[in-house]
Every structure is written in structure tokens, then in C-alpha cells.
Amino acid sequence: MSGPAEIVLEVARLETRFGSQTVHRDLSLQVRRGEVLAVVGGSGSGKTTLLRQLLGLERPAAGRVAVFGTDLATAGPDALAAVRARWGVLFQQGGLFSALGALDNVALPLRELRCLDDALVRDVAALKLSMVGIGPEHHGKRPSQLSGGMARRVGLARAIALDPELLFLDEPTAGLDPVLARSFVGLLRELAAELAPTVVIITHDRETVEALADRVAVLAHGRIAAIGPVAEVAALDDPAVAAFFAASPPPAGSGDTAAARAAD
């Protein structure tokens, strides 16, 4: 198997621009195999855009994003398909297909491989749903008929349908009440132990970070302000880090200071 220091995901000197606005500037990040990395930052710090870059949904203005050693911007369709079969994504809004039932939503990535028997696919999908605690009575339900917490679980089941080596979670607990959020974090931890994937969590929730993450990267002013084990980073006295770990909302106007810093 791979050594412990293998780099699964690498971002090198990434720059993202929308028109004249620079979201990321000279951002570098490495994710090692098997670790759980949380990317945190205040709202507007470019977390979601960073995730879109990591998933190849956005093209870098400069720099590169490589997943499993494949540069997403230059890879051909076959190479991209190979990468996409090895990762799973839980979107913040779920991204569930509203025309399909829960089971079919989870079965879809398996069916898309186009080489598995349907009976087998249904068994695997049912297993994934039971892993996230969704019973067979909900298998036929459409996303609009599921509660928010259940839809999130189905989304997670779909994200792990292919037993991904790399799992992206975008704000996994956003919009869930604290009890539900805690149980969802518990579920994530169980699954992380069971499937042992590399996990990248984008979040603004401190509790999620402390419960799940091995390392934490603080995103501020369009670059990584600090990265390291959670306890170490929490002890730093960088203002961006402190703003997050003080569990208080970032001071108003932090976006302006970001622009000011980026300008110099």
C-alpha cells in the first residue's frame, strides 16, 4: 500500500479571479493520504470557491490543482473520469437528483459505471443507505419527501457509493440543528473509521473541526493563513485564526482588509 506521506491532493500557487476580483492568490495546500483536513474560514473567505477548484468545476487563473497526481485543468476526459471514480462529494445543498428516489440516487454512480448487475447495484446502494441510517421504508422517497437531515444522509450515502479514496464534504453540518449536526458528525466519524478515506471538509463550524479533523487549514485573505494539527493552529495568535477559534463571527469589514492585504 501507499506510504503515509503520499500526497493525494496538491494545490500549488493557485490563483482564482472573477473579473477584477481576486479570490485566491498564491494559495498552496497539500493533503496527505488518510488524513482528515478541515478548511475553515469566515464567510467570503473563498472556501466554497476553493472547493470548486479542487473539484475541477472552476479553472485556475494561475497555478495548478492536482488530484491523485492528475492536473485537473489539463487532464483529458479519460483521466478525469478515472479521478472522478475515486472521489466522492457531499454538496452543501445535497445536489440530490429530485426526479429519483433515495435508493436510485445512491445507485446512480454505480450504474454509471455501466458494468455492474442491477441486482448487485441495488444491494450495494441499500448497504450504503443502511450505513447512513436510512431504512428501506425510505428507499422510494424523492428528495422533496425527505427531511433535511435525511436528505443530507442520502447525499452522504451517494458520496460514498463508490467507496471513494477521497471524500469532499461541503459544510456537512450547515443547516442542521445542533442535535442532528452532532449525530451527523458522529456518523461521519464512524464512516471515516470504517472506510478510511482521505477527507477534505469545508466548514465554518468549529465543533465539526474539533470532532473530525486531524489537521486544519485556515483560509483568510485569499491564501492559507495557517495549517497544522488542530491544537497547534488553535494556539497561534494570528488574527484570522483567532477570529475562527474564538468561535465569534469574523469582524465586520474583514473582506476589506483582505482586499487591502492582497493589494500590497
Binding site: G101, L103, R122, A126, L127, L129, S130, M131, G135, P136, E137, H139, G140, K141, R142, Q145, E194
Partner: peptide, 25 residues
């Protein structure tokens, strides 16, 4: 042990598989 847990899950999923084919909405 982790394999045993996986198969236990499968057994549990199979046990609750009553009316899997719930009528679509």
C-alpha cells in the same frame, strides 16, 4: 474486526429489507 463489522451491517440491512420496492411516489 472491521470486516466483521461490514458484514454485520450487510446482515442488518438484509434483515430490515421488507418491502424494499416501495411504490414510487
Amino acid at each position: 474486526p472491521e470486516q466483521r463489522a461490514l458484514f454485520a451491517r450487510l446482515a442488518a440491512a438484509a434483515a430490515t429489507r421488507g418491502e424494499t420496492a416501495a411504490p414510487p411516489a
